[in-house]
Design a protein around this nucleic acid. Structure first.
Lengths: 183, 183
DNA sequence: CAGGGTTTGTACCGATCGGTACAAAGATGG
DNA sequence: CCATCTTTGTACCGATCGGTACAAACCCTG
């Protein structure tokens, strides 16, 4: 037997590629190599629970790898730069979609509204904090943090729409420069 | 009988709210008030044709209301400002989703790849042209245009994720200021 | 009003949806 | 090795999916 934790990454990929509605149990079964029996044994509440767990896993990953470092950084500017590194790697230059963003746009938004809001709110807050500690005004930091997170999401959309990963990389580079400039 | 044109807006709303896969024929039937017989009479190729027509309609609207004015403007700065007005109205401060962006993120992206790419490429090109004619370097104009379009898409995601339309309005205001600043 | 083509609703198709039931198979503890 | 409990595959459930068939209703033109 495998625990839930070790199949969450594969599960996440199915949701990313097909969305919540499009991720059918047969797709999930194929992707995980588990039959329905096993899936419903691990996730008694079915697909909704799978998606909730995946969102929680993603949230945990961002918390550990982006938000916490941003909050704890002694050198905030370096932490922000590290965040961009992590973002570029995680989203594979825009070829990998942000599942939380996809959920936010989809019809199942209300079901996961809490998790979605929390993910973005904490991202913005952590980034804004780091920007403030690197010398910017708090209000300007918050505004810039919002812009940065939105730009990342938009760059994913645009890179996929144009089928041009370079768009994503260019956007990240431009953001680095804007953030490095004095507030 | 009603022609295809007059039910495209309602059809578009169904696709926006439920995505391509989620927009079932029964939903479409209810939203348009037409039975399957009528729908397949108007769109012999079924759902795919409906979606293609909706995308074409959206593309036409943006061409007429945003791209063409941007290209033809004698006062490019005013045209850019008018574009932001149109965007804020069209997307209802981020409460209405960009169907083309949703398709770009979804699994049916390949099916509509041409239309999606065309929509965004023309938007960026028209905006970059206006920015150039208002005195910016061509390369800088292109980069800024890309950023602006990405920011709009990201602001929609963020406004919906946080369930806070003000996020969208703030983002648009910030973009206006950035664009108005000297290149 | 009659004829002919179009538009419409409805019944139906096989496939698949999310979910359940349950018995065989596997692991675990004594 | 047996008894017990968990994990697994498979068959099955009603509902709904996208799509088709087709006859009744409708609208023109004569």
């Amino acid at each position: 037997m495998r625990g839930r934790a070790e199949l969450l990454p594969g599960l996440a990929e199915v949701f990313r590629e097909h969305g919540y509605e499009g991720a059918s149990l047969s797709l999930i079964s194929r992707a995980t190599g588990l039959g329905k029996g096993s899936l419903y044994n691990l996730f008694p509440e079915g697909k909704a629970e799978m998606a909730a767990c995946v969102l929680a896993e993603i949230d945990g990953w961002f918390e550990a790898n982006l938000y916490a470092p941003l909050r704890a950084a002694e050198r905030p500017a370096a932490a922000v730069s590290a965040m961009f590194d992590a973002v570029e790697t995680y989203f594979r230059s825009g070829q990998r979609v942000c599942l939380v963003g996809v959920v936010a746009l989809g019809s199942e938004r209300d079901r996961f509204a809490g998790a979605v809001r929390c993910y973005f709110a904490r991202w913005i807050a952590a980034l804004a904090g780091a920007l403030t500690r690197s010398g910017r005004e708090p209000a300007a930091s918050l505004a810039l943090a919002e812009e940065v997170v939105a730009q990342i999401q938009g760059a994913i959309v645009l890179a996929r729409a144009l089928d041009e990963p370079a768009v994503f990389s260019r956007a990240m580079t431009a953001l680095r420069i804007r953030v490095a400039a004095a507030g």
